[in-house]
Computed example of a mutant assay.
Amino acid sequence: MAKKVKYYFDTESLAYKKIKTSFKRKFAYVGGFILSSALFGFLCFVVLLNTTFFETPKDRLLTREIETMKLKYSILNKKMDQIDEVLANIEDRDNNIYRAYFNTSPIPDEQRKAGFGGINRYKELAGLNNADLVINTSKRVDIISKELAIQSKSLDEILKLAKEKNKLLAAIPAIQPVKNEQMKRIASGFGYRSDPFTKARKMHEGMDFTANTGTPIFATGDGVVKNADNSKSGYGNHIEINHGYGYLTLYGHLSKYNVRAGQRVKRGDIIGYVGSTGRSEAPHLHYEVHKDGKVVNPINFYYGNISAEEYTVISRLANQENQSLD
């Protein structure tokens, strides 16, 4: 194909003359074309980089790493599910076997499962790719770590209780405060009874053992005498023994004391003698057992010095709704 020749009309010579392009102009035309083509190509490359139609080797590598990370997090969460199951089993045995055996309070779920208050601990993770996955997994790890710390501390406490088992067993108030052969009868048990003075039905927080004045009273477990005086209204001369492990016993209406405050006593030691001091209708011993600050039925603790037949008789008598002696 022949090259096109361009002409222009010369007004002076009134003739058509051929247009001649200089080398510089030709070079400028070629350079401009090359530059514009390069710029257009660069723009297209940038656009392609930001679309899914064009993936660099680095992008493919990052994609594989992200998928691998998701897989690892999935495996980690499955392992944490297994840890949760094992930990829940340990916590159940801790509360319902170990702590029940050593007669100590279970750890409430609110304490075991408590979250983390205050500032946002995961703020720095919020801007990451797959932030929800990373944050939720981090939370689970933190919660499990806290539960493990609580359980570890609990097992340390159980181990300590196991080492002190003999002390615990000796401290529990496990015998009657008055010997069977020295009792006339169990006058009144634990529960609602008729008041001997007002005849009104009210809560009787202990057991009344009728016996002659001067009958020996025995400490029902090892402990330290908290007080031996008449400071409590209605109890007359009375003794309180702190046995530790949450146990406290009270012996009321004594005729006289055989111990003093601060003195350490053993189960079976004579601590005082039956009387009728204070708000009392007749010679008897009023006996109470407290656990963790709450009054409990003393009949549940007479397993150290009576037979099953004797326990049955005592239980039947104690459960009669009669009149108390104080």
Rank of each mutant, 00 (worst) to 15 (best):
I306M: 02
K79H: 01
G304A: 07
G244P: 09
Y16K: 09
R267I: 02
M203N: 08
N129H: 07
Y16W: 06
S194F: 14
F102G: 00
Y101W: 11
G234S: 04
G115N: 03
R93P: 07
I270P: 12
V296H: 13
Y247S: 11
S36T: 10
Q323V: 08
I175F: 03
G272T: 10
V259D: 15
F33R: 09
E91N: 15
K6D: 06
E288V: 01
K153P: 09
H286S: 07
D10W: 02
H290S: 03
T56W: 08
K202H: 08
V259N: 13
S74K: 14
G278T: 06
L168D: 00
N258K: 14
R279Y: 13
I34W: 02
K17I: 00
I150A: 08
A282G: 12
D208L: 00
L76V: 04
N96T: 09
T210I: 01
S315K: 13
F9C: 09
I107F: 06
I83R: 08
P298N: 10
F23R: 07
M203P: 05
R185F: 10
D292M: 08
Q323G: 08
A126D: 04
P177N: 08
E55I: 02
K26V: 02
A28G: 11
Q323Y: 11
E205M: 05
L325P: 07
L43C: 15
M80Q: 11
I217W: 08
I306R: 00
K20M: 05
D84A: 02
R140S: 08
Y247F: 15
Y7V: 01
I19W: 00
M69H: 14
S36C: 13
N77T: 07
A211Q: 04
K113E: 13
V86W: 11
K24V: 12
N305C: 07
A88T: 15
G221C: 06
Q151T: 15
N230K: 03
G293C: 09
D208W: 04
R316E: 05
K232R: 01
L168S: 03
V178D: 05
P283W: 13
E147W: 01
G206K: 03
Y73T: 06
F45H: 15
G206E: 02
I107M: 11
F190P: 03
K18A: 00
L14Y: 04
T215E: 07
